[in-house]
Design a binder for these strands. Structure first.
Lengths: 196, 196, 196, 196
DNA sequence: AATGAATGAGCATTCATTCAT
DNA sequence: TATGAATGAATGCTCATTCAT
């Protein structure tokens, strides 16, 4: 396929621009320039600036969620599932730094609409974690006193913050693999040498 | 009642407005109205809108960091220190929801300046965690293979996300104490029943 | 049914759209849709949006003027001529409401160009009235102290406003015939019972 | 009072600009420049461009209507009242050409809202004419077969069109007094020498 | 110090017009 | 001829900031 369709070009450009300048500081003309289309062209594919943000989210993040979900479904062992989740999330985020930035920064915008929206689609994602935990508890692999509703947030927050290292800056003292292993082991064992 | 000085009144008002509407959607006039001063008055105390955000951050968050630091310094046992850290952070965030909102949302703005700034001041805070971990490792309480530089981020991210529950919304199925205990035990033990 | 040529289709569509939304609020794409042609096609027949308006005017209104002229020319009695003028004008306007709307509203656009243009072509039409009046005065049927240059405007204005009733709205308490008779008698006799 | 209040300055400027360029071709910046204020200042006094138009109408035209009404109320003889109406209308319109232009041109804009609005406030004005006619009929001064509902429109249209002479252009072959007398006599006597 | 009216730079969005197919 | 996707100039409006009082 020769001509990459404009829609994708704009989404990609917007992801980059939003990541770099933030939603509010991003100008439609920045996106247009990045996508090498005219300003007006953008409005043939999106209703307004906000719609672009939502679309970036839906299309790009949607894909990721789908991937993670699929990978997990093929596993049975909760411990493996959690490991896969961590690995997949961090790997994808490291690969697509722009996107990571957009998720982490823009979608926390205080705008009620976004927040609600985010909640809906993210809920599903985050709930993958609590589902894994519940399974682990059924198999008595995981501690019964762990509250899945709290743990899922703690784990997601940990992943989110850790992956910021790549998008926000630099300080990559650690390899992807190292980080993945670290996080998995923290989730599983905590920090203590000998649990009392 | 002494007349609360304008500076503080504006900071408080700004925290509330930023939390509610977000930095970009917040109007100077909103803040002025909330603080019951004239728009122009704000510019007698702050250089510009962005400066207000930074000030909210410095003054309010600074106080918190100070508190947490002080509480930890009086402890010696790393496990207790970590527990104190968690407890203090979550307690303060639950109390000051507006502020929590601002930390979590606005200060992730992609604006390089903010990010760098945030990183600088937060570094100090987050490093409290890695310091605790290193201490724990020295005393052989914590696993030697834990990378403090990674763990500190994971822990901070977990706390940050967990505390969002209170600022953002709803699902407060859990009491503060429950949550605190959960997080502490996750940090310490992970989820596994019997670490292999 | 022969394929009506595109030119006419566009003129007709434009008349309808201009009448409904006004020149400035009308979109080329509205006209194109109404005419069932592509936007670009319009530019094969007209130079620009304004040219469409002028063309509507010229072609449609031109026809009317021609008709009225012809009808009058076949008469000799000024009183009959005036009656014919009134009758024809009101009848045509009632029939073609869209057009009436365009004449009355859009062509009063303050655009110098339109105004001048309108004046030119309308002049000819309006002068039919003053010609009739002059004839009537020659035959001593009409008062010598009537200024044809003023009366022509008053009469045209009266007709124009009266015919608005049909295009603009509603309140058609009166039949076309009633209105025609009224206007003719007002022009001829005025309102007084017994002229002093 | 030294500083003419901005509100009036803007209304006056807008009246002039609308008259010259038409509502749609008028730029907010044109009005601002004419009023010697900043663009933004306009929005301290008006909600939007359309609101300016409505305000011009309400404030300026409202005054005129009031004047005409008052003048008529002090009369008792329908013939005098009609004469006063004509005189007042034409005098005011000649004096305030910009305003006349705005009434005649802009308020015929096809925008439903304006049209309705116009109809409401104008109705009242135009009904002054039919009221006069009815009175004249009661006193048997005016022909019983005149339909006030039609005559009012014919008369108003005549006045409106006649007064355009001054606002739109030139050809002021006639003095104000001449025109006033002409119109009054046409309304009263029509054109015929000897009514049959 | 305090006010709040005034400023004007800045930007999302629209839409007449073009042009490759 | 006909299309309609693409263009980009143009403008109403917002709001951080200033400054006369």
């Amino acid at each position: 396929m020769k001509t990459v369709d404009k829609h994708s070009k704009i989404i990609t450009a917007a992801t980059k621009v939003f990541a770099k300048k933030g939603f509010f500081n991003a100008r439609i003309s920045d996106i247009a320039k990045e996508a090498k289309v005219a300003d007006g062209t953008i409005y043939l594919y999106f209703n307004n600036k906000f719609d672009i943000l939502i679309s970036v989210f839906e299309e790009e993040i949607g894909k990721i969620i789908e991937q993670v979900k699929k990978a997990i479904e093929q596993e049975d062992d909760p411990k493996q599932m959690l490991a896969i989740f961590v690995r997949k999330h961090l790997t994808v985020m490291k690969k697509n730094k722009n996107l990571a930035e957009v998720i982490q920064i823009e979608l926390r915008q205080s705008d009620k609409l976004v927040k609600d929206y985010r909640n809906t689609i993210f809920q599903e994602y985050i709930n993958l974690i609590s589902d894994i935990i519940k399974r682990g508890q059924e198999q008595n692999l995981y501690r019964q006193d762990v509250l899945p509703g709290v743990a899922k947030r703690a784990f997601f927050g940990a992943l989110d913050e850790v992956s910021r290292v790549w998008s926000a800056s630099l300080e990559t003292h650690y390899s992807l693999e190292e980080v993945i292993d670290q996080v998995i082991s923290l989730f599983h064992f905590g920090v203590l040498t000998y649990p009392e």
